[in-house]
Structure formats: structure tokens, C-alpha cells
């Protein structure tokens, strides 16, 4: 596990460690079970194509959860995730590299919270899931 990042160590503009995913169709099925979302466009190619898609697509909520994991990795073990928000601007497909990234945009000393601009990007570098995150970090004091 990574070493703890403290509130005092973080500066606005810092980029946090990225997280890389390459979702398999198996992972999408695991997500269907784990999240309870059994919409067929995420695991049934023929069904997805009948709705006009080229094939199955990654669940938006899974990309949201990956952004949550990005923030959890940054803040843990002593911090906590307070907010994960994102927009779904583009579709992503399995078996491609998807990168989750974030930069610190604001620090608030009152609650030791750090606001971040977070996003998921596809292999072409397009931000298909831009958003905002907030984490609470422990203090060195």
C-alpha cells in the first residue's frame, strides 16, 4: 500500500497518481452482479447492436466507481472520499486501456478537504468522464 499523503503535503496543481484499467468482458459481468445493473448493452453484443451501438460498452457507473478508486488510493489509508461526481461524455469499450487521472484544484483547511478535477480518458486521450472529487486527508499536526 502507498504511503499516507497528508493535507500539508498537497498543493493546488498537483497531479495525483493515475490508475489504469483494461476492462475485460468478464469485469463488465462482475460489475453487473456487483452493482445490480443488468442492462444487456453491457454484456450481450447482439442486444447492444440492436440498439444501434457497435458492440457492448462499459457501464458509466463503473467508470464513476473507478474514479472513486482513484480517490481512495490517493487518500488511504487515513483519509476518506467525500465526493465523486462525473459526467458521461463518451462511450468506452472493453479490452482498451482506460486511464483515471486527477489534479488538485483547491484546499480547504477547515475540514482538511482537497478538491480535485478528475477524469477518465481513453487510449486517444479523450476525457470521456470528466468530473470533480473531494477527499478528506489527515493532518501532520
Amino acid at each position: 500500500m502507498a504511503e499516507q499523503i497528508y493535507f500539508e503535503d498537497v498543493a493546488e496543481g498537483d497531479e495525483i497518481p493515475a490508475l489504469e484499467k483494461e476492462p475485460s468482458t468478464q469485469q463488465l459481468v462482475q460489475w453487473a452482479a456487483g452493482s445490480g445493473d443488468f442492462y444487456q448493452i453491457h454484456y450481450d453484443t447482439a442486444f447492444a447492436q440492436n440498439t444501434g451501438l457497435d458492440g457492448i460498452i462499459v457501464h458509466g457507473a463503473l467508470k464513476h466507481a473507478w474514479l472513486g478508486e482513484l480517490l481512495h488510493r490517493f487518500a488511504s489509508p487515513g483519509g476518506r472520499v467525500r465526493r465523486v461526481a462525473c459526467s458521461y461524455r463518451g462511450m468506452d469499450v472493453p479490452a482498451q486501456t482506460y486511464r483515471l487521472r486527477g489534479t488538485v484544484t483547491k484546499k480547504s483547511a477547515a475540514e482538511r478537504t482537497v478538491e480535485l478535477s478528475i477524469w477518465g480518458e481513453n487510449e486517444s486521450g479523450q476525457k470521456t468522464t470528466p468530473g470533480t472529487g473531494v477527499v478528506e486527508l489527515p493532518s501532520r499536526a
Binding site: D37, F38, G68, R80, R82, C86, Y88
Partner: peptide, 29 residues
């Protein structure tokens, strides 16, 4: 059967448009 939530518990009106997209999710603790 698809989402597992009970009927009558989800908010939102029936749109007259036939195509839908999930626009985003914001979870605040």
C-alpha cells in the same frame, strides 16, 4: 428485473423523447 429497484421508488418523469443517455453521477458523502 434489470435494475433491481422497486417500482414507484425512482424519481423522474416519463420523457416524450424515445432515446435516453445517462448524463452523469454525483455521490456526496
Amino acid at each position: 428485473p434489470t435494475g433491481g429497484t422497486r417500482r414507484g421508488t425512482q424519481a423522474g418523469v416519463r420523457s416524450p423523447y424515445t432515446l435516453v443517455l445517462n448524463g452523469g453521477t454525483d455521490v456526496e458523502y
